[in-house]
Design a protein around this nucleic acid. Structure first.
Lengths: 205, 205
DNA sequence: GTGTATCTGTGAAAATATTCACAGAAAATA
DNA sequence: TATTTTCTGTGAATATTTTCACAGATACAC
């Protein structure tokens, strides 16, 4: 079984592999990846070894091959189904970014305000929030990007749960209620900056 | 010394304490905080114990007191100086959010495009990117929110380094070059969703 | 005040994750 | 082809983090 921190690093490695692939690099050594990611080469090799896939042995990794292995393991080949809940400026931005790549299947957007839904241009179907559970179930949405206002998080979480959504990427400033058992990753501008500030502070001593 | 994961959790706890403070709660037990954050009560108590501050002993934590201790330890009382590099939609959003609270001192915004600088309304002084090193040094900027286009990351990183910036909150899709030794936290929409997808995948087995 | 229930604080134990070190496979060299 | 160099893969050692368990402090009821 792959340790969770290793999984996170593997996702970071995938990003770097994409960069290399775009730059038409065919081979990647653990050392080069260390230079790109800051993850030590031995950690990175160990992480890859958790995948239990035959590697190149003594040669370098083949970028495409390793990407394929990661796609397999990380479940990206399936194009997980994603929705965006909350279509304020941030939500709309996320929607746009997600649509700009094929990696995820963007299935729907939701907002409490019907005006927003009618006025927003998007390739994706947009719905009022109260339809979330039904739409999510009908379309098999697995992941949600949560960009609603802080005050709406609780209600939206309940709806996502009813819709069978399993994982939430939480961009709001408040905590997603843990009782639903979502797999949550939270990205709070303030919290992240606090962690950096605390890091500086710790480094000073 | 506070373990790094503990530090991150403490920042999360701080967020929940803010929520409680807003809700006019005076006391917080480790159990209540567990319910809010999903962090187990014993982990959370241990984390707080790393702070080496006298706690309430047998009673509950006093919300204000604990917040004060965390502000102290996390270095938030100092109002760390922050800038935003890259004033596209995301950068402007970050700028607005940062200005909406007093927690950080937002000192400057930067963009490569001079039109953007002239057209953007902001309470914060905006500068063209090439002035970043000078401005950052002059104003003592410690942290940067990096929201430039992916192709500009390398150049911007160099400038931030020249400006004496120590920590970066990286919202771009590419890796910040590790050779400068920045303290980096990266937030990539795609990477986060990948981690969630991998989590689902792992849970299925 | 006495008793009971509820907390925190923390050393020690257990679980996890990282680093190391080196065997052995590929690639490069000559 | 033989030799050297450069890699990966991984068990074992080390380091870190989390969990546990319980002593002792506080709050509360009566």
């Amino acid at each position: 079984m792959v340790p969770k921190p290793a999984l996170e690093r593997l996702c970071r490695i995938y990003t770097s592999l994409e960069e290399m692939d775009t730059a038409a690099s065919v081979y990647a050594s653990s050392r080069e990846l260390e230079d790109m990611t800051g993850i030590p080469a031995h950690t990175l090799r160990k992480d890859i070894s958790y995948l239990d896939q035959p590697g190149p042995g003594g040669g370098k990794y083949r970028v495409e091959r390793l990407m394929a292995v990661l796609e397999q393991t990380l479940g990206l080949k399936r194009r997980p189904k994603v929705c965006v809940a909350g279509l304020g400026p941030l939500g709309q931005l996320c929607l746009k970014m997600l649509c700009s790549r094929r990696e995820f299947e963007v299935v729907a957007g939701f907002d409490a305000n019907i005006n927003v839904i009618e006025l927003t241009e998007s390739d994706v179907d947009l719905f009022p929030s109260y339809e979330l559970p039904a739409v999510a179930r009908a379309r098999g949405i697995e992941l949600a990007v949560l960009t609603v206002a802080d005050g709406e998080v609780e209600k939206t979480a309940a709806r996502l749960y009813d819709g069978g959504v399993r994982g939430i990427l939480n961009y709001t400033g408040v905590t997603v209620p843990p009782e639903y058992g979502f797999d949550v990753r939270s990205v709070s501008l303030f919290e992240e900056l606090r962690i950096l500030a605390a890091g500086l502070r710790a480094a000073e001593k």
